[in-house]
């Protein structure tokens, strides 16, 4: 493993473990009151990892679109590789959001799936970015693959916020809990600390994954190049 990605990965992993510790042993349990009875909502513990995963996925999908635009502007191959690596890492995290989201839905509402705006949004994102990979594998020529990949990564990134807004158009009230509002976070003290530690841990870990993926892409290209050189002689 390259040094930089090793350092990032271990720092991220340490923070994530600290996050687990904070979430389970320091942060207070979430309590709801129903008819004078106090209920501990243990499933809220999922929040400390589910939300950082979701936000990390946004960061990388956005970066994917940004690097895609930079590739189209400059035609520098390295931007295209950065875009591809960012989208792939982002996609891994979208998948994680789906998995953890489904589990949380089951724990909280007793069903595996609910057509709720935010869950639906992530399902659409999963499908849209699956389309990105299908598109890339369906184009043969390297330069066209890079071009169409970059273009679709931009279109998809633009579509992410639109999908979110559209989900709220529905007159059905969203059941998904909203923690962050324009007024700021409705969390404080140990809860916020646990969340932020997990959040940064996740970002660091994702960055190390991104660097590894990028190394792999670059090495692949070097190999192709060397092979061609050897054949031409």
């Amino acid at each position: 493993m390259k040094k930089s990605s090793l350092i990032l990965a271990s720092a991220g992993a340490l923070l994530l473990m600290a996050g687990v510790y904070l979430a389970f042993f320091v942060a207070p349990d979430a309590v709801v009151r129903i008819d004078d009875r106090e209920l501990v909502r243990y499933s809220q513990k999922i929040f400390y990892f589910h939300v950082p995963v979701a936000e990390t996925s946004f960061v990388f999908l956005l970066l994917g679109g940004l690097f895609g635009a930079m590739y189209l502007g400059t035609r520098k191959r390295s931007y295209e590789q950065m875009s591809y690596a960012a989208v792939e890492v982002g996609f891994i995290f979208v998948l994680l959001v789906m998995i953890t989201g489904v589990l949380w839905t089951r724990a909280d509402w007793g069903v595996w799936w609910e057509w709720e705006p935010r869950l639906t949004t992530f399902l659409v994102l999963t499908l849209m970015y699956s389309g990105y990979f299908v598109l890339r594998s369906s184009v043969q020529e390297e330069s066209a693959k890079a071009r169409f990949g970059a273009i679709f990564s931009i279109i998809a990134a633009v579509n992410v916020p639109l999908t979110f807004v559209a989900g709220r158009l529905d007159s059905l009230k969203p059941v998904h809990p909203t923690v962050f509002t324009l007024q700021g976070a409705s969390m404080e003290g140990p809860m916020l600390a646990a969340f932020l530690v997990s959040m940064f841990g996740m970002l660091l870990f994702a960055t190390s994954l991104y660097i590894m993926r990028l190394d792999l892409l670059r090495a692949r290209e070097d190999i192709e190049y060397l092979k061609e050189e050897l054949e031409v002689g």
């Binding site: 493993m1 990965a9 687990v20 209920l39 501990v40 909502r41 243990y42 499933s43 513990k45 999922i46 990892f49 589910h50 995963v53 891994i92 998948l95 994680l96 998995i99 953890t100 589990l103 949380w104 089951r106 724990a107 909280d108 870990f205 994954l209 590894m212 993926r213 792999l216």
Partner: peptide, 29 residues
């Protein structure tokens, strides 16, 4: 949902995140 019923899902979430990330790292390496 209280502790007794919820814990399998909570553990499931944390395990699945670690599992997916580790698998991805191993595949990449």
């Amino acid at each position: 949902m209280e502790f007794q019923e919820a814990w399998p899902y909570v553990v499931g979430v944390y395990m699945s995140i670690w599992a997916v990330l580790l698998i991805y790292v191993v595949v990449l390496q």
